[in-house]
Write a protein that binds this DNA or RNA. Sequence first.
DNA 1: GTCACTGCAAACGGTTTGCACCTCT
DNA 2: AGAGGTGCAAACCGTTTGCAGTGAC
Lengths: 154, 154
Amino acid sequence: MSTFENLEYSSLLANFKELLKNNSLKFTKQREVVLKTLYERNEHFTPEDLYIFLKSTYPELNIGIATVYRTLNLLEESLMVTSISFGVAGKKFELANKPHHDHMICKTCGLIIEFQNDKIEQLQLEIAKANHFHITSHLMQLRGLCEKCAKEKS
Amino acid sequence: MSTFENLEYSSLLANFKELLKNNSLKFTKQREVVLKTLYERNEHFTPEDLYIFLKSTYPELNIGIATVYRTLNLLEESLMVTSISFGVAGKKFELANKPHHDHMICKTCGLIIEFQNDKIEQLQLEIAKANHFHITSHLMQLRGLCEKCAKEKS
DNA sequence: GTCACTGCAAACGGTTTGCACCTCT
DNA sequence: AGAGGTGCAAACCGTTTGCAGTGAC
């Protein structure tokens, strides 16, 4: 269970500021808009997508893509965002303020459906235990076709 | 269930040759040693690891890394090998001649433990059905520490 | 005023591609 | 002989890093 579950923006922001302070890091406009955008849009962003969005939404900041990467990495290390991996194609990031969940990903249109299943989580723990393995995280993605794309193909 | 499950080398080779013939592709020494190595070593190879192994084991072939990538991609498209992804760090490939399974991966030493659980597979299908999603494949990795590394850390 | 942060551009690492030569069929 | 395959090196693409200038504290 994440420390940041179900927090609203003001609390997330306070957490972020405290985290920065504790590590002698600075609160900047760039870091603020990254967190704000992840919160408000509630989407799965690639660093590239987020960069493009921020570039056009806050042109006065003239944000660089390196800063987007640096901020996402900082937030991920701090467990305030999580990422899902797409193999060689890269990663997508989302804010970690919702309960743990996994993803179904449509191969055709890229739609992401979130789901959560306690029984599977439980079984994973049992399997790990049987193998003397200590789970720190897991990755579960179901890949295939969403309803719309499945219809279009048939 | 894979078409190639439990096949031994001679059958795999025959399948590969037929596949090549059907697509007007040629059977070469390079393609042969890639398949042979994946079969004999029965490991999870990165393209780089496989390249280094082939380079030293068959120096007379003077194999290039591009050929290793091309062959692995060909075999993966043909469903004769599968890959597991490590985010930005790349992929590892293994021969698809064993029954479907998933992986536990030790973050510290890279150890890979294979496991299989019918109940989870069943639950995944149910979840997909409830979301009108048509699964074609799934990815499940448990990440954490193996027994040995967990002991060393404590 | 100091130290961290930023944008920029160059570097990086894994992967793919264009090309001239080679090899399987 | 001809099609496809190969090794090589260059290109590619997402990501990281060095650096000089900027901004938070």
